[in-house]
Computed example of a mutant assay.
Amino acid sequence: MAAAPGTLVRQCLAVVFFFVILVSSTCHSPAAPLKRSRKSTTIKEINRKGPYIGLITVYAPEEKAFFATKAFKSDPKQPFVDLAGRRFRVGKVHDSKVIYVKCGIGLVNAAAATQQMLDVFDISGIVHFGIAGNANSSMSIGDVIIPKQFIQTGLWDWLKPNATVDSSDFGEVDVGEYNVKGKGKGMNLLGKIEYFAEQFYSETGKPNEPQSLLWFPTSPRWLQLAASHLQGMKLERCVNSSLCLPNEPKLVVGLNGSTADAFVDNAAYRDFLFQTFHVSSLDMESSAIVMTSLSNDYPVIVIRGLSDLAGAQEGENQIKVFGSLAATNTAKAVIQFLNVYQRNYISHYL
């Protein structure tokens, strides 16, 4: 029996609609897969030339200081790959093959960029560098430190004033201890801050059973390499011809570092962190990069230049004055480490 005229019209419209959708999807949908395919091909070509040392810094002034050394030479064929908004630059620092990225400020940015680098590229280890606040009165602005371990001091519970702190946790700030001078100690409605450890997942641990860790160590063999060859290296003392530090900056290996999603510009809190956790540097990324590297079972080292006194100075924070000098000294130390690594590590430490 023949179909009714209305039915035929509806069928014809359905066929036309189907072909419109088909043509539209054919014209537009392959763009993203094609872009990914091109990136995948580029990444494969880059990885054939590996492995590379991954270099991770944080923000523009540190990047500027690093490139100002002119030690980094871009790969002539594949100079960079853009992934999720970050530019991963491919090249060499003298004889060391490197992939460099600026991760962005904070723990999330640092962990995301590190995991992305380890997942995508043929990486043999991570060198993280940047500037940091100084929590140690025996250190000075312009000094460079290469910590042996990091603590994440952004993990804490904010408790009521009369709360009891769990004895299994690692630190406590009683805000009442820091009341206005002359009024003495006492009750303060801001209460207490109780610190606790990080949950650490790793390749070498049991799946879905994280360890509870407070400290995350940098790689002992890389630390030993830095201690043997970088301590005593000459660092810059002057920002310019009219602004110099009173003493020659020094590089120290083996201190403790602290990371949290907070810029510290408060002398009392700075002193609390030093006295409680014995940390010398305060930054916002290092522990995330160290933790992510260790979680994936990669060696990692951190090089941080001290740019300010984290609130112990009079007046405004000195990062605006000496931040560029600290970044310059950090970049010099990174270049020196890569040179030493290339000459010594491959033959003596693997």
Rank of each mutant, 00 (worst) to 15 (best):
A331H: 04
L230V: 00
A68I: 00
S140G: 09
R221H: 10
Y201F: 15
K181I: 01
V23S: 10
Y195P: 12
G323D: 11
G311D: 11
A333P: 00
K181G: 00
T259G: 03
S202Q: 09
L309K: 10
H28S: 11
I303F: 03
L155R: 15
L243N: 10
F67N: 05
G257D: 09
V290Q: 01
K192D: 06
F272W: 15
P5W: 14
F200K: 09
F67Q: 08
N296P: 03
K320W: 07
A333C: 01
A227R: 06
Y201K: 13
N188G: 02
W222C: 00
K185Y: 07
F18I: 08
Y269I: 09
L255A: 01
H229W: 09
V144P: 06
V58N: 11
Q78G: 01
N47W: 07
Y341A: 06
G54M: 10
F196N: 03
N188W: 04
Q342L: 08
I131K: 10
Y59V: 10
D82R: 14
R86M: 14
Y269W: 13
G191E: 11
Y195S: 09
G182M: 04
L189T: 01
A310R: 02
Q318L: 15
I105V: 14
R36D: 14
P5M: 06
P33H: 08
N188T: 02
I346C: 02
N240C: 08
I123F: 06
A333D: 00
H28W: 14
N344G: 00
L255Q: 00
D82G: 04
L8Q: 12
D122V: 03
T204W: 13
G323T: 02
L294T: 05
Q116H: 04
Q199F: 13
L213A: 00
T328M: 10
S74K: 07
